[in-house]
Write a protein that binds this DNA or RNA. Structure first.
Length: 344
DNA sequence: GATCCACAGGAATCCTCGGGGT
DNA sequence: ACCCCGAGGATTCCTGTGGATC
């Protein structure tokens, strides 16, 4: 019954393991970071209050994964512990973030955007004291109204785990009182993974996700090399390579297949970001990537002819600063000498 | 060095949308 | 059916900045 063809077409044994959001049962190379974060959160297990922690570092360095992993671990020690993950890019307004946080404790069922008074959401969160509540605020620098952090900070049984690429992005536009509260928080730095570290991370995914001999160390090193320290890219390349190999009924993931999917995998990850852009942000991004480098004046001119209903220059500047925050574009020079370039 | 000018970004205000109350 | 309200996007107005020009 199980012919050779069937076996070959089943190279991938568990596709979930190949997804970027998969949280492994055991983490590699981040034991210091994990224990630092667990130490910070430990008071919760003793009925106390844990201080805010901030995980920062480049994308694909394992921040989100470690935060989720550590909280899962913590849950094994605390019988009653609520937790919630919020991506502040997707839920960037005060309302949406609060709503998501209430969802995490099943208190959001009857909330409607208009009818619910302004502070009702926060009040509900404040009133909740059933169990310690740990919340991960990912991409916290994208939060529009940072004063929400102050409000959350003052809720005694709520513990924040903040995640951002750079600490400056978090603290830059905080007011004095928030700064003095959050500055002393526990900061845990995440560096890029080394090539060897990426290989062992991939080895785990190989073990759990594909047939044992589907890929060799040499090929994993090739993937790691292309990923340049970014685990998300490494896993993306691996996933695409496994998929292509399986589609072509190959028993192994070869170097050729890997080379073929590298750019596709990288643009897939970028695509995930650009998918979140509005029509106007997208138009601006396209112009900047097409030209390679462009002055503000030329950019606005091209933008106006590219879209049907161009927004004002002021609005375009808002969009551009968003694109910069998203690491899609970069700027150089000041005032008249300014130019916009795509990020590499 | 004075002046000009393109530009950035803060603040106030306007506009629109969607849902609830009467 | 109508009005009202709040949120968030968009616009307008404005000030500050730094390169360019003479």
């Amino acid at each position: 019954m199980c012919s050779v063809v069937v076996i070959e077409s089943c190279m991938i044994t568990d596709a979930r393991v190949l997804q970027p959001e998969f949280v492994p049962g055991d983490v590699k190379h981040r034991t210091n970071e994990v224990s630092h974060l667990s130490d910070t959160l430990r008071p919760i297990t003793e009925g106390g209050h844990a201080e805010t922690s901030l995980l920062y570092g480049p994308s694909g360095a394992g921040k989100t994964c470690i935060a989720r992993y550590t909280i899962e671990e913590l849950r094994e020690h605390v019988v009653a512990l609520d937790h919630q993950y919020v991506n502040c890019w997707e839920d960037h307004t005060r309302f949406k973030t609060l709503h998501r946080l209430l969802e995490g404790i099943n208190k959001a069922f009857d909330i409607h955007r208009q009818s619910t008074p302004k502070d009702e959401l926060l009040a509900r969160l404040r009133d909740y004291d059933d169990a310690p509540y740990v919340v991960i605020l990912d991409e916290v620098d994208q939060l529009e109204d940072k004063s929400l952090l102050y409000d959350l900070y003052r809720i005694s049984n709520l513990t924040m785990v903040l995640i951002a690429n750079r600490t400056e992005d978090v603290f830059a536009d905080l007011d004095e009182r928030l700064n003095s509260r959050l500055q002393p928080c526990t900061r845990i730095k995440f560096g890029r993974y080394s090539l060897d570290q990426l290989v062992t991370i991939l080895e785990d995914r190989v073990r759990w996700g594909v047939e044992p001999d589907a890929i060799g160390t040499e090929q994993l090193e090739l993937i790691a090399d292309h990923a340049a320290g970014d685990a998300r890219i490494a896993i993306g390349i691996f996933r695409n390579a496994a998929r292509v190999a399986q589609q072509n009924s190959h028993t192994q993931i070869t170097a050729d297949v890997i080379e073929d999917v590298v750019s596709e995998a990288k643009s897939e990850i970028r695509q995930k970001t650009t998918d979140k852009l509005t029509e106007h942000q997208q138009a601006l991004y396209d112009i900047i990537t097409d030209t390679g480098e462009i002055s503000p004046g030329d950019l606005y001119e091209q933008y106006c002819s590219a879209v049907d209903d161009p927004k004002t220059q002021r609005m375009v500047r808002n969009h551009l600063s968003k694109l910069e925050q998203y690491n899609l574009i970069s700027t150089s020079g000041a005032t008249k000498a300014r130019t916009y370039q795509p990020c590499t």
